[in-house]
Design a binder for these strands. Structure first.
Lengths: 346, 346
DNA sequence: TTGTAAGCGTTATCAC
DNA sequence: GTGATAACGCTTACAA
């Protein structure tokens, strides 16, 4: 193990025969304003390169009460919906000079709470969180106590937290309107976490589409309890073990859709011949599935970018703190071939 | 903004009428060894709960020269291969009491170098990196200088860095042996980054399979330069604009496969009827694609877990430092229906 | 144009 | 059983 010659700013100052202050000033680009001779400045800069000196962010953060670090809490980083948002966030943060502490809450509320506290103890400048969605108490309390944060995707209408999400109501409405326009009236809705707001709004869109088109609503067709592959599989199996299976399925996440596909395949059914399917959230593979999937696309990249930029603006400017920040991004319907015109044959 | 009553250990000590030292000892579970009265201990613990006091990790890290934080650098967190590894790493790290700073190098060597330095300035206890794969100089230098690190997936045989990866040679061999056993002799290999070691070894497996089976090798059938969807698309287009297209494609990543699929669809061809396809790296959607994909599966979860555990063991125990750590995890061939028996018709 | 010294919140050494 | 105090590496008044 090679010893580093220059571990800290003191070593550097000693080698140069300068004071710590002077070195610090050059390092922070304040050479001009303190009228440090450009000769001295060059000597410092050269030594930094030569000894590969890098300031200790802990010490800096401690002194400055600013870490230039954001915390990100996500329910499942392996879920491509979230991993794409995470990429967008990571990229935007890097460009803006911020680092990112990544936390995966594993769709578990108590892990989430633990992670929120962890991030605070890391003194992050702000938190971006896609909450599990059950309980916003701690989050709200933390926000009240002055921690900068922004909620993405799964917000709560009961708390005044800044959020950025999709227009899930419109997305649900568009999806089901489309199914109805294709002649479907028996439409199942396999949902994710029922209490989560995006889920609620997608379901509201589903219900509203029935009302608008005067289609009777069968509450038994709304089922499921998590945004997982397993849930999609299970609910599809249940649906098709009943007397009166639906002709179309509206799956409320890409993961659920994968589960639906598994079950449909296993049962020897075909999409769209036997069942039509429309999926919430577009993915790179959506177009290449057994039957290219008709989906509701969300603006994931914008979501991440806006979240980071809002947060940083907020960190830099205390005054924005009071103003509400609630954004719902437009979704779009991508029509492929997983929905067929239903001919009314029972 | 609600002011926190207790910002630091001093506030807490003052409120309790105790010294900072005593509070610190209780907080670090050293009450027993310093024979602090259990009454005092309880008072401290209670106050911690009451005021929701949380120790400042910056201060702690600065003093202890240990941050309980790992750095993770990945070429593309939106790539499901990496996002799954990241999940495994995040989970294992959390369990072991470590936080994770996530960095996305965007497949860019200079960003990667920048990020390595960033992590060091954050004083992370160790770095897990899936390198872009071109240049290991800085990484090696950093390792030499005493930074704990472990390479996952894309290692380099030229540097003595601890790594954990898949047995890419065997994976490539298995894939192509299978294609040959199904009667294919004109097999294209759409590769990722040519200089990266996993790519090299997969290609070596491809070549060796030809040798073993006495199939003449056509070097023009090895093409491509990145692990991306775009590359898969482009190379497939090129392959099928030539006189003598292959009967099978071995795609060296899941992203490349998606690109192949796009091109194949666009050209009105069918898998496996017109072209057989085998893909490196299994994904949750692999079974549900147009034609369920035959793939080489990698032990992604184990890769992440082993990386974290090796790193932490290394951090805790300086002595392991010298010992080489080179692991190649077995892959497995998952046979589905994207490869058909080739009947020898030209 | 440069330097001295205090302080950020913690832990560790020594003292009582 | 408990407490002062120095130190970790950095920034920033205040001096000179």
């Amino acid at each position: 193990m090679i010893k580093k010659e220059v571990k800290n700013i003191r070593d550097l100052a000693n080698i140069l025969g300068l004071s710590i202050t002077t070195v610090s000033r050059v390092l922070n680009g304040k050479a001009k304003s303190y009228r440090i001779s450009s000769e001295t400045e060059q000597r410092v800069l050269l030594a930094v390169k030569k000894y590969n000196y890098m300031p200790n962010k802990l010490a800096r953060g401690l002194k400055m009460e600013k870490t230039e670090t954001l915390g990100l809490i996500i329910p499942d980083i392996a879920n491509p919906f979230f991993s794409y948002i995470a990429k967008s966030i990571a990229s935007e943060a890097r460009i803006k000079g911020y680092s990112l502490i990544l936390c995966d809450s594993e769709e578990n509320q108590s892990i989430e709470n633990e992670l929120i506290n962890l991030l605070i103890s890391h003194q992050v400048d702000g938190i971006i969180i896609a909450p599990v969605g059950n309980n916003f108490e701690l989050l709200n309390q933390v926000h009240q106590s002055g921690v900068h944060l922004v909620v993405v995707d799964r917000y709560s209408p009961d708390f005044m937290l800044p959020y950025i999400t999709s227009d899930n109501y419109q997305g649900g409405l568009d999806a089901v309107n489309y199914l109805i326009s294709m002649g479907h009236t028996k439409i199942a809705c396999i949902q994710g976490i029922p209490e989560s707001q995006p889920n609620r709004e997608r379901v509201n869109g589903y219900i509203r589409a029935h009302e608008i088109n005067h289609i009777p609503l069968d509450r038994d067709y709304i089922l499921g309890e998590s945004f997982s592959v397993e849930n999609g599989y299970k609910q599809t199996r249940i649906l098709y073990s009943e007397d009166d299976p639906p002709t179309a399925i509206f799956a409320l996440s890409n993961q659920i859709s994968l589960g639906v596909l598994m079950a449909i395949n296993e049962m020897g059914l075909n999409i769209p011949h036997d069942v039509s399917l429309i999926s919430y959230d577009e993915q790179p593979y959506s177009a290449h599935l057994g039957t290219p999937l008709t989906t509701i696309e969300q603006k994931k990249k914008e979501m991440g970018q806006l979240a980071v930029n809002y947060l940083i603006k907020n960190i830099d400017n205390e005054e924005l703190k009071g103003k509400p920040f609630n954004i719902k991004l437009k979704t779009s319907l991508i029509i492929r071939s997983s929905v067929k015109q239903f001919m009314g044959v029972v």
